[in-house]
Write a protein that binds this DNA or RNA. Structure first.
Lengths: 153, 153
DNA sequence: CCTCGTATGTCAAAATGCTGACATGGAAGA
DNA sequence: TCTTCCATGTCAGCATTTTGACATACGAGG
């Protein structure tokens, strides 16, 4: 059963597992798994950590902003925020003088938790890219963006 | 020589959204979304389509094999297979003379459904990589694998 | 032969995420 | 002004996925 398939399809790859999409998903799954394991020691899930990072970078983001930033729906982000509020890691205004968006901010506890967890996550990313030359890493980032843009269009 | 990446700081990026992991997740999310939308017209979910592709490539894979191949747990794969069985797209042996793994095969309907959906998915992947030179695509694939391997270790 | 370790299938419960729907607040334009 | 459109927050229901646990099947070594 060796090497049949003379490639009749519009895709050069003979095996599905050779496709870009498959590799992309595989890498993403590996990263997710590593982060999941590391963050468990800090009492955080990946979406929770993502929200904390975004809020540290840009304080005052709204629920909808965080949903876009973490690639989930508003509803899912809402649940995540509820968990973070109950854990005392964030605070959210209950009203606003303009619009409906309610800004969210990190509490002191939230900042501490983020700093504690950040090291573990950064170490994972470091390990992930340690064998990739800087030049290729730049190309990789650009290509990832190119692909994302092509799909969003 | 420059392959030995100088890379001054452990993390050159000052913004979280500049990190490799973030871009990776973003691209993966965009692909997932596009596939979801396209596959809906064919009555398939992404995990279902993934299973069909794997089974077309390697008939007789078991539930656990498919779980590994689609990057989910055995339990999740089990649910997916149940749906595919009810839809008449696959068949699974109810017993085996050796071991516990029960081999799964595509039915004729499953093959037809896969062929119908495959075009839409391939078009998405085509669109995704159309603006990336062949040489960089090869590097991209290699780097994705390098990152995955570094995380699995 | 027997035990240990590993792999598999499966059940139950909980967590997570999404779709659909609705009301509210604001901006743009007739 | 008023009407229309879009973004936001939120509720309810459903689907998906994971964690945890258990029994079964096989191979490797004692």
């Amino acid at each position: 059963m060796e090497d049949r398939a003379p490639v009749p399809a519009p895709h050069p790859a003979r095996d599905v597992t050779e496709h870009v999409g498959y590799r992309l998903k595989k890498a993403s799954a590996a990263l997710r798994g590593a982060m999941d394991k590391a963050l468990r020691d800090h009492g955080l899930t990946v979406p929770q950590y993502s929200c904390l990072e975004l809020l540290d970078e840009r304080p005052g983001l709204s629920n909808a902003d965080l949903a876009r930033g973490t690639f989930v729906t508003r509803q899912s982000a809402n649940v995540v925020l509820r968990g973070l509020k109950e854990a005392g890691l964030i605070t959210q205004a209950t009203s606003t003088d303009h619009g409906r968006a309610l800004p969210v901010h990190l509490t002191a506890a939230g900042q501490r938790r983020l700093r504690a967890a950040r090291g573990a996550v950064y170490a994972i990313e470091e390990r992930m890219i340690e064998n990739i030359p800087a030049r290729r890493l730049a190309a990789l980032l650009a290509d990832l963006d190119t692909m994302t843009a092509a799909l969003e269009a």
